[in-house]
Design a protein around this nucleic acid. Structure first.
Lengths: 187, 187
DNA sequence: ACCTGAACACCGTTCAAGT
DNA sequence: ACCTGAACACCGTTCAAGT
């Protein structure tokens, strides 16, 4: 190691939360869940493995921070027809999943991590269903349908092809499938 | 280690495929995906870790064998109304998922493993949809819906509560939700 | 054919020590 | 406050050796 032992002088900090998160996403998108280790990430950052622990606590903390970072802007438009707002929300979430499929697998395979963003998005779906005036029993079942379908589609995209053309097809396929599903909500 | 070094005399074989698979499921159901390691499994079997490799090749091979073992008998009844056959198939699969939730996470988090049983069940759904006379474009979209919903429900059950009362509720909840979903297929 | 033992190249993480 | 180095208790797996 060429780096001196102490704290680097200001404007030279080799690791910030931002830089670590970006590098982590790159590593995950490139090498998949398999190659995503604390030590590999440290190597990529040219930093001691323990530096990451200083910023995120532990591996679960890092995964949690990643999902906060990736899903933060997913939300339904404030106005519009109920069905279109729901469609926008689910498509926005799916777009983020397609952008970083490995993160989905990482979250699902790390039982200790249940990202707040996942809960927030679920709550938003629930709220939309309530606003649409569905009876509460029906609303609960449709919440299951939409959440489970979304997670299943996430898994499918995470296990599938990763070429950009396949990703485009995946988006189109998802949109069409979602339309069919949402027809059931309309009747 | 008290066990002698060579091959044990017959009727004393400490490990058979069957015995290893049963112990593996017990370990997985008890300790979850976290504690499921080759070495922990070997300990539980009172056997050298390498014994498992002799029977299953490697960890992926073991997970593959587990899914063959658990999902082998999932299939649609040979006769009956289309919708009831579909419902039976999906319920049968979901029942196996509820019985061993950890296995679902294990499969999804191990990209190298794509169980033949998963493909077989998917093919059966596809066949049922074709027999029902759906146009092929529609059939493809409904395949997405049913498969993704099923996988999403599997994830949900794997991440949720594991008490037997929660499991019973989960079954009831799934059955009701599935009914709502299948109504869309009927129209 | 089936099992063991030792060893290798990894992990995540703790703890002490630097500036 | 932020970073490093060494060490610990694990992993999955290979290879050689036993019967």
């Amino acid at each position: 190691m060429t780096r001196p032992r102490g704290r680097p002088h200001r404007n030279r900090a080799p690791a910030s939360r931002e830089r670590i998160l970006d590098a982590a996403l790159e590593l995950l998108d490139t090498g998949g869940i398999e190659g995503f280790t604390m030590r590999a990430l440290a190597d990529r950052l040219q930093v001691n493995p323990m530096t990451i622990y200083h910023h995120f606590g532990d591996r679960d903390g890092l995964v949690d921070a990643l999902s906060e970072h990736v899903y933060a802007e997913v939300s339904a438009p404030a106005s519009g027809a109920f069905l279109e707002r729901m469609r926008s929300l689910l498509q926005a979430y799916h777009e983020r999943v397609l952008a970083h499929p490995g993160l989905t697998l990482l979250i699902f395979s790390q039982p200790a991590v249940f990202p707040r963003q996942a809960q927030r998005i679920t709550d938003e779906i629930k709220l939309l269903l309530a606003e649409a005036g569905l009876p509460s029993a029906m609303s609960r079942l449709w919440l299951n349908i939409l959440v489970d379908f979304t997670h299943g589609a996430a898994i499918a995209s995470a296990m599938g092809d990763r070429s950009s053309s396949a990703t485009r097809d995946a988006k189109e396929d998802y949109d069409k499938t979602l339309s069919v599903l949402l027809k059931g909500l309309n009747t």
